[in-house]
Amino acid sequence: MAGYLTTHVLDTAKGCPAQGLKIELFRVTDEARTHLRTLVTNADGRTDEQILPEAEFQTGTYELVFHAGAYLDATGTPEETPRFLDVIPLRFGMSEAAHYHVPLLLSPFGYSTYRGS
């Protein structure tokens, strides 16, 4: 089985997918970050393509950066300065060639993640 990475963002405060949220993917090697791609979530809160496709998959350490503050601003969440959650970095490891799904459950004052399927 070839490895690949997907993600999904749900706005738990509104009870819907988080559409229009910018996500960046970085590969991390000895604390150096290499930007691989930037995608935006669709109406289902997913990206239109795998965030790390099979052809580019390598085991190692990665970081997904979710631009939550800009999403919250765009969706009419009441403003605060500074925003409690702005940029959310999630650093994780992929140790085998498999499907890794790293979702984000988001609200203005908290988030959670897990390895999904």
Rank of each mutant, 00 (worst) to 15 (best):
P53T: 13
P53S: 14
E54P: 04
E56H: 13
E56P: 08
E56I: 12
F57P: 06
F57C: 13
Q58V: 11
Q58R: 15
T59I: 06
T59G: 12
G60D: 10
G60Q: 14
G60N: 11
G60C: 07
G60R: 10
T61D: 14
T61K: 15
T61F: 08
Y62A: 09
Y62N: 04
Y62W: 08
E63I: 07
E63K: 09
L64H: 10
L64I: 11
L64C: 12
V65C: 05
F66R: 08
H67S: 13
H67C: 10
A68K: 00
G69E: 09
G69L: 07
A70K: 04
A70Q: 02
A70L: 00
A70M: 01
Y71Q: 06
Y71I: 07
Y71V: 13
L72V: 07
L72H: 09
D73N: 14
D73Y: 05
A74W: 03
T75K: 11
G76F: 10
G76Q: 11
G76A: 10
T77V: 10
T77S: 01
T77D: 01
T77K: 00
P78R: 11
E79Y: 03
E80T: 09
T81A: 12
T81E: 13
T81R: 10
T81P: 01
P82V: 12
R83Y: 01
F84W: 07
F84K: 03
F84T: 03
F84E: 05
L85F: 06
L85H: 02
L85Q: 03
D86Y: 00
D86E: 04
D86N: 11
D86R: 01
V87A: 08
V87Q: 06
V87L: 07
I88F: 02
P89L: 09
L90Y: 04
